[in-house]
């Protein structure tokens, strides 16, 4: 019996995890179905676009700037071991647009937006505002989830694109001011080695990460427990699950895009 107890705990955790995956999958399918069926709420969509996209720009931009700079320093230091310092511009560009731009952008938005969405919707739930929506003939999935999911899915690729440019600029600043690169050569090397698919794959990743961030925020908010503790737990769960899903889906997308 003592030996069976840990097995039982593993079994219960597995079943619980499978149940959660099933519920999230159903919620995601419902969210998508509400995206394409009227009524639509353009004002809520515009507000979500402002909150998720526009107001995340400083966070994503600063993250990209410092990451691009650090990346240039690392690649220069690593490349110096086998006389390959010249690859700094191209590796910074490829690293930013394929991986670091979308992943770090997604994670920063997960921290900022998934938590805010979960806290807002969780508070609406515990103060009966969600019930009030229903009594006012308004479907919470349509009014709260669909606009946020659409806004995040559309705005993350734009944030990633801006982050890519700023990240490459960060590498350029460090490369030209600290590492002695010629500005014109740095830019030429960046552009020459970058392919369209490098950029597009990062933008597609951004859209997927945006969908994940908003979905996790809304799901955990809608399923928030009672009181301040319930809302706090929903907020934490939203950020953690969005971050893990972003990293997992990043691996799967990279596998799909670059090894298939």
């Amino acid at each position: 019996m003592i030996l069976l107890s840990p097995l039982g705990a593993i079994g219960r955790s597995t079943l619980s995890m499978l149940g959660l995956i099933g519920r999230v999958a159903i919620y995601a399918a419902q969210a998508i179905s509400h995206l394409v069926r009227p009524p639509f709420y353009p004002r809520e969509f515009a507000q979500a676009l402002l909150q998720i996209g526009w107001l995340s720009l400083p966070v994503v931009g600063l993250t990209a700037l410092f990451t691009g700079g650090a990346l240039a320093l690392q690649i220069y230091a690593g490349g110096a071991r086998f006389n390959a310092e010249a690859v700094v511009p191209s590796i910074v560009a490829i690293g930013m647009v394929r991986e670091l731009g979308p992943v770090l952008g997604g994670l920063m938005v997960a921290g900022r937006v998934a938590s805010a969405i979960a806290a807002e919707i969780g508070t609406m739930k515990v103060t009966e505002q969600i019930d009030a929506l229903v009594t006012l003939s308004t479907h919470p999935m349509k009014y709260l989830t669909a606009p946020r999911v659409l806004a995040a899915t559309l705005s993350l690729p734009v944030l990633v694109a801006v982050g890519d440019v700023i990240g490459i600029f960060g590498g350029y600043l460090v490369g030209t001011s600290r590492l002695g690169f010629n500005p014109a050569t740095y830019l030429d090397n960046t552009v020459d080695f970058l392919e369209l698919w490098d950029v597009l794959s990062g933008l597609v990743k951004g859209a997927v990460f945006g969908f994940i961030v908003a979905l996790m925020g809304c799901y955990h908010g809608m399923n928030s427990g009672r009181g301040a503790r319930g809302v706090g737990r929903a907020t934490t769960n939203a950020v953690v699950s969005a971050s893990i899903l972003i990293l997992a889906s990043n691996y799967l997308l990279t596998e799909l895009f670059f090894t298939a």
């Binding site: 609406m124 009966e128 505002q129 019930d131 009030a132 009594t135 003939s137």
Partner: peptide, 27 residues
């Protein structure tokens, strides 16, 4: 139906008149 909730359940992000007219602004 109309319903008055225990805590009011007013929507924090909307002005008072938009709360009152919520049903008249959509649907």
């Amino acid at each position: 139906f109309g319903m008055l909730f225990q805590g009011g359940a007013l929507f924090d992000s909307l002005a008072v008149w938009q709360n009152v007219a919520f049903r008249l602004l959509r649907g």
